[in-house]
Design a protein around this nucleic acid. Structure first.
Lengths: 224, 224
DNA sequence: GCCCTGGATTAGTCTCGGCTAAATTTCAAC
DNA sequence: GTTGAAATTTAGCCGAGACTAATCCAGGGC
């Protein structure tokens, strides 16, 4: 399934999958533009690719009203994401690559990882279920542990929550989060919310003092 | 240097390098056709690429009389080969991939290995100078331990020699060689040569009995 | 020294994935 | 209901790198 897709195709399917998970409950299709900008590509290119993916049976594309993964498309997306997250975990744990850098490495390696190495990595790591940022690693059978969709930004002033996962693709944000103690598993208390759309002051268990998080960054931290 | 080349370019340069080393002493250029068939590509494609490589300053191309690497081209080729051989070593030693399979894996990974991971792998392995098949791993400075160019096929009947390296790209041959004890470091005695161009009967230290090698396979084993 | 043959190059296409500019469709506002 | 802005698609193009067919040149045989 995976092996007969180009890495461009894999990137589109992966992005589509992530967007579908983010929009969560409502069953609406993903707009072309949303996909395009996530991939940093023009809308026209996206339309072309969606047509192609539709003929391959990987996507359902209703012109002018967006696209959705088919079961086959989802399978491919999950295989790529499994590669990505296994690689991130391997790079961090076995090779000692800093956690803010593993994403970039995994981004290119995910497309060329053979089945054999995938299996080897998984067993060396003891078939992990989560990557270093707290994201679930899909199983070979396509099963995915469901992740929280509540972000730190949504936590009310005075409330506490446990960090479940953080977005993996902005190294600067990751470094800042690690420095102030916002790591998967940490307990967070929202001390005070800044002015409208302003910073969020948080306190982390085991980390002294409170720190500010912009809305942008707080929205890339998911809690439970 | 490496980073701004496509993987197609890297493959051409690498092949050119290997062909240049094989033809060893005479300083003649590599014929277009030789390069083409090594890469499994048409001669026309090769001519096009050579013209491109020439404008990039990576190759000297005299129409109708072949091509040669420039110092810059050689640098890129050595970087790719360093990647390839470090990866083979890593896959075999750290990940436990069978030695006849590491070549195929390294072939795709070599093009996407970052500088950071290259360094990490090298230091995890203790900066090895040879890969599992006995080929020298170029240093970061471009230095390469020189390898023997005498093949097992050239050893006279009754003479002995030490296996230095074996070609890495034919899994079946590698499995056979390993089975009969022809591994880098092994001591070989040529017991008898078969009929003209026929098999070579060899004896290996620590391995009882003699075994036959076709000319084709014996020519992919280099001895000292 | 000429010619022929085989290696090499040129000419012309193809597929992939991108792009911009020009249509087109949808949908919200009136 | 009409309309206009925004989203989307279509049309036409580009660059990489591959291919085949046609042409061209270099060098050995005579």
């Amino acid at each position: 399934m995976l092996s007969q897709t180009s890495s461009a195709i894999q990137d589109y399917l992966k992005a589509l999958y992530v967007l579908e998970v983010e929009r969560e409950p409502d069953g609406t299709a993903i707009p072309t533009t949303a996909l395009a900008q996530r991939l940093g590509v023009s809308a026209a290119s996206t339309t072309n690719m969606l047509k192609k993916l539709a003929t391959l049976g990987l996507v359902r594309h209703a012109p002018y009203r967006g696209a959705e993964l088919t079961p086959d498309g989802r399978t491919v997306a999950l295989e790529v994401i499994r590669h990505h997250r296994l690689l991130e975990t391997y790079l961090a744990e076995v090779m000692g690559v800093p956690w803010d850098e593993v994403h970039a490495e995994a981004e290119v390696l995910e497309h060329v990882l053979s089945e054999r190495l995938e299996d080897r990595i998984a067993s060396m790591l003891g078939d992990p279920s989560f990557d270093p940022h707290g994201h679930p690693i899909p199983g070979k059978d396509g099963s995915v542990a469901q992740a929280s969709t509540r972000t730190l930004w949504e936590v009310a002033e005075g409330d506490s929550a446990a960090v479940e996962r953080v977005s993996d693709d902005v190294p600067e944000a990751l470094r800042y989060l690690a420095r102030i103690g916002v790591l998967p598993g940490a307990a967070i208390t929202v001390l005070r919310r800044g002015p409208l759309e302003g910073p969020l002051f948080i306190e982390v268990e085991g980390h002294d003092g409170s720190d500010a998080l912009s809305k942008e960054v707080a929205s890339t931290v998911w809690v439970r």
